[in-house]
Design a protein around this nucleic acid. Structure first.
Lengths: 152, 152
DNA sequence: GCTATACTGGATGTCAACATCCACTTTGTA
DNA sequence: TACAAAGTGGATGTTGACATCCAGTATAGC
């Protein structure tokens, strides 16, 4: 249902959100998120074009979030790499239905709308702050972990 | 978000649900639903294997619904051609998370769950009976239209 | 200014989804 | 029984998503 690319982009963004203290290189991100590094490089370019991350070349460079993790939603990430295609016109190309979907496609679009909404309402910060589940992404190496790492 | 194959399968099933009086040939279905006939043939095979339709060879043959349209859900159709892949284990393959998804994947799976639920709760009959919208699929040729075609 | 580091963009390869074609089998009807 | 209609299964072609590689460019640090 979700493409690999979306999955990769989300992993990378969650990782960056969790480690905002310094830029992370593509290689670092790839290692932790287990994404093929060469491909991740393309994904990061897309995220950069989508203005979700900022790229810094040269020594000590890498990627950082372009804005606070509270202001980046799952939907932002998804849309940056592979925009959610809502069904706006009947896929059969019926001119008569350009503004009014048939019942079938209305249902399908409703489902997409629900998903889109759920994604729009969840920020990276929220994902990281998840109260009940303790693990941030999945296999992050133990965080620097300052003594008072509340909710980690 | 939805594959072409799912789209095709749904169109075909809605058409069959709307025309249950006699078997419909692959060619008939293809013409109305605007699906490539050769490919539709494969899709119909999948629906047949999924026991959603019954195939009848020979003269006057074709496909019919395997059971009443009230008993076939959108989800049944989707699952017949391309099962919804819920996220049950962490895609990163972390053994520690086999039963407990990390927050990110939990959210993604939640979204899938919502969609799955919506699909499970909608039958083909309901799609066809849609009260407010008058058009069955999109480009069905004018139905035989018996005067009192009560919800079929 | 040099150099090592790290992102960028383009060319290329691989594979699964989408799509087509055709020989074969089944079956209703004359 | 013969034939035409219609689904079946397998081989094959096409295309886009996924993935890799590398030459080029920008930049921090010396």
């Amino acid at each position: 249902m979700f493409s690999q690319t979306v999955e990769y982009a989300l992993r990378a963004m969650v990782f960056l959100a969790d480690r905002q203290d310094a830029p992370r290189t593509t290689e670092q991100i790839a290692r932790v998120t287990k994404v093929p590094v060469a491909y991740l490089s393309k994904v990061m370019q897309a995220l950069n074009r989508g203005e979700l991350v900022v790229a810094q070349r040269g020594v000590r460079g890498g990627f950082r979030l372009a804005r606070s993790s509270e202001k980046i939603t799952i939907l932002d990430v998804v849309n940056a790499v592979e925009p959610v295609q809502r069904i706006r016109t009947c896929p059969l190309g019926l001119s008569a239905h350009s503004h009014r979907l048939c019942p079938l496609h209305k249902r399908m679009d409703d489902a997409l709308a629900v998903m889109e909404r759920a994604f729009r309402e969840t920020t990276l910060a929220e994902v990281l702050a998840e109260p009940t589940t303790s693990i941030p992404l999945c296999d992050f190496p133990p965080r620097p972990k300052r003594a008072k790492s509340q909710a980690t």
